[in-house]
Design a protein around this nucleic acid. Structure first.
Lengths: 178, 178
DNA sequence: GTTGCCATGTAAGGTGTTACATGATTTA
DNA sequence: TAAATCATGTAACACCTTACATGGCAAC
């Protein structure tokens, strides 16, 4: 359900094609959709049927024709209504916790190897998020308020991975001390 | 796929029924399954077919008959193999970020009301997690190492919500200062 | 007497991912 | 000549949630 509003959000800045949206989603770390076609193209059909967007097909000489979607006033109203909807809690799922919880059969070295692998994964992701934020891709910059919000969303992700790194390092140290 | 291993993990401590597992999942904050019947009972059928668990039906005088599942040596081996599997990154999805990102149409008061509502939701959840951890439910306590791990998993969740609280409070202050 | 607990399961539907399918143009 | 990019879409499947269905017993 939410991906439709994420799409409406992007369209509230400028008209885009499905392909554009696909790239925006797959490049973004903060938006959690993988940018797969199935969801995006279906969502666009739904949004169009609900009159929240209009569609114009542009035939190009070189390359395939593109369908450009533009948000309608209905769409803007829907986006505003949704923005006033009660906030949901973040959903965190950490399969590694489940894995960790049941490592009774592993010896100390095997356990630490798993923790080291996790630490490395988190470190790489952390650097990726930081790097992407420093390049500052796709930030709206419409108002100072919006810029502040977008910077803080990115900061939230950075803090999350920092927290995760600290945690796994502390756990490894505690286990070594045991 | 992972819920099967989470079930195997619980069964590695003691034999349990589907109903027991359902309660364990729905009471646990760190395991992210809602504890719905559909997944659990289907997973148990699958595990049984794969010979990772055995099933014994106990007919009770008072109340319905219960099917008690016990892990097999195959099951223990499967759990061990899985514990050595490469760790996955945590998946965090925060619908509120998406909502926040597109609040350009809201005025300052409306925006802060949303942030306040989010802060309150996080605060309540945070207190719940802390409270549950202090009651220390369902901790295995088989070895010092396992106890340390379980305490740290809980600590990770507490830190996560603490981080989220700090973040939203800082953001509200920043926006107020703007 | 209605709610809650014990205990099993099924149905339906929403959400999300990977892979498949097509085909032209540009870049290495 | 192989690959990446532009641009659309479909198929299959995994995952997860809510609600439905049944029925006895205990507690308030």
């Amino acid at each position: 359900m939410t991906i439709q509003y994420a799409i409406l959000g992007f369209l509230s800045r400028e008209p885009l094609t499905g392909y554009d949206l696909k790239k925006l989603f797959s490049e973004s770390v903060t938006l959690y959709w993988s940018g797969n076609n199935n969801q995006i193209y279906r969502a666009l059909v739904d949004l169009h049927q609900a009159s929240l967007v209009t569609r114009v097909t542009e035939h190009q000489e070189s390359g395939p024709s593109r369908k450009v979607y533009t948000i309608t006033t209905n769409g803007l109203a829907a986006l505003r209504d949704w923005a006033l909807t009660p906030p949901e809690l973040p959903q965190l799922r950490n399969p590694f916790h489940v894995q960790l919880a049941w490592t009774a059969q592993l010896d100390d070295a095997e356990l630490d190897a798993q923790l080291a692998a996790y630490e490395e994964e988190v470190r790489v992701k952390y650097l990726m998020v930081r790097e992407q934020e420093s390049r500052n891709t796709a930030t709206p910059q419409r108002t100072a308020r919006e810029t502040l919000i977008w910077r803080n969303i990115a900061a939230n992700w950075i803090a999350f991975y920092e927290n995760e790194l600290q945690w796994v390092r502390a756990l490894r140290a505690d286990l070594a001390a045991l």
